[in-house]
Design a protein around this nucleic acid. Structure first.
Lengths: 232, 232
DNA sequence: ATAGAATCATGTTTTAAAGCACAAAAGTAC
DNA sequence: GTACTTTTGTGCTTTAAAACATGATTCTAT
């Protein structure tokens, strides 16, 4: 089947992990209620304070979840890659969104009304388990992140972000990290100012850990990078 | 009924929130499998790397969940108060513990084998919802915390910790915060060194926001404290 | 093609917080 | 009670990272 977004068929072919857990009746419920939405590069998907109404599944593109902190500084909390669910935490906590979400690049999202999700969860223990597991994993990551962002030094924090990007989006054949971020986004991911992100990247180039070509980051010495990340 | 820990009756009277969601059969299953455990002040409850086997519910006392970071610095991730469940994240994520837990003061914990918990969850949607909600709330707190600990200045971070302690453990009639922490623990909660915790506390006393008597912290101007916390 | 904006880069200055040193005080053990 | 350890309190020094300033480069829109 051709990749052609906007077509509801993407949805049923792409949501595989969850899809497998559903019976025909539940699948029909989803087909009837899910909607596909496209977002342009840098377009906001939801904002802090909004009421959560839909479960979202990223089908294509890259999304960042971030928070605007004190004094305009923003902090990227997590990044979403295709076939990953997001935007459900606030609903389950019975809160409004605490974070903002925006598309890094042109992205396609499948929106499922939370009402539908609940209807399915009620009778499907596997779906409940799925959310419990995802939330548990994310909470673990958040706890790790808290310590890493507060205790590691600049080099360690940047190295950690790069390692995270490698793990999330992978490397191309020539060892280029498969996502192109501005220096500012890289800084917001690593809890530092843009100048320090630039400076520290330059250091890494000097140390022959990476090579740069605009926003392309080529990983030269991954082992070393992970060591810097680990030792802080 | 007398408060008398070690007696299985505490358990059934205290776990009320969850207890209400169970039918008689499920209650019997819990009664048969739950165990009560006592921990002394500063005693470790679980350690990073341990395999999670039991759901824990704090019946009495105060517990800290923390992580040992780089260079011996430890960071308190969250604090548990009585009738709060903990220690389940790692199991649900199918990981070993990422954190350590220790009793702040003499504490009583009810241990329920995870196997039993799963057995109940399987047929009880309300229990699933309970965990989903708790995890979602905790994840929201963790996200907030990441930004607060990284972006706020020392005064803001300490004020935030004090506000958090007020919210968690309450104030006595004379406005004393109902938990006594060492300066070091306060520092670990606020992501700063012990000297800075001491210094900043002294500043707050000077500003007539709090008054100190050993480890007793009396809140003089709560509004001001929350303002400092908010503005960073 | 050209103007204007955004991004990237680098040097310099400032500052918030850590690190260190050393007492005083409070707990704890014998 | 006395010795020992831990915790608390303060002053001084150092340092990592932010803030600021200024160009160069790249992107974007008309």
């Amino acid at each position: 089947m051709q990749e052609k977004s906007g077509n509801i068929m993407d949805f049923s072919t792409n949501l595989k992990e969850v899809w497998r857990m559903l019976n025909e009746e539940e699948r029909e419920l989803l087909r009837a209620n899910a909607a596909i939405q496209h977002y342009k590069k840098n377009q906001q998907i939801y904002a802090e304070g909004d009421e959560p109404t839909h479960l979202m599944c990223l089908l294509k593109g890259k999304v960042k979840i971030y928070k605007e902190g004190v004094g305009g500084r923003s902090q990227i909390i997590r990044m979403i890659k295709p076939i990953q669910y997001f935007a459900y935490r606030a609903y389950f906590a019975r809160e409004h969104y605490l974070t903002d979400a925006a598309a890094f690049e042109a992205s396609t999202v499948c929106l499922i009304p939370m009402k539908t999700v609940r209807q399915i969860m009620k009778n499907n223990y596997n779906i409940c388990k799925f959310f419990i597991r995802q939330l548990s994993i994310d909470l673990g990551i958040a706890d790790e992140r808290t310590v890493n962002l507060t205790q590691k030094h600049i080099r360690g924090r940047l190295a950690e972000s790069l390692a995270f990007l490698i793990d999330s989006y992978g490397l191309e054949e020539d060892a280029t990290i498969n996502i192109y971020l501005s220096r500012e986004d890289l800084a917001n991911l690593s809890n530092m100012t843009t100048s320090n992100a630039i400076r520290t990247l330059a250091n890494f180039v000097n140390d022959k850990v990476i090579a740069l070509d605009g926003r392309k980051i080529k990983v030269i010495d991954e082992e070393r990078l992970r060591k810097i990340s680990k030792l802080g």
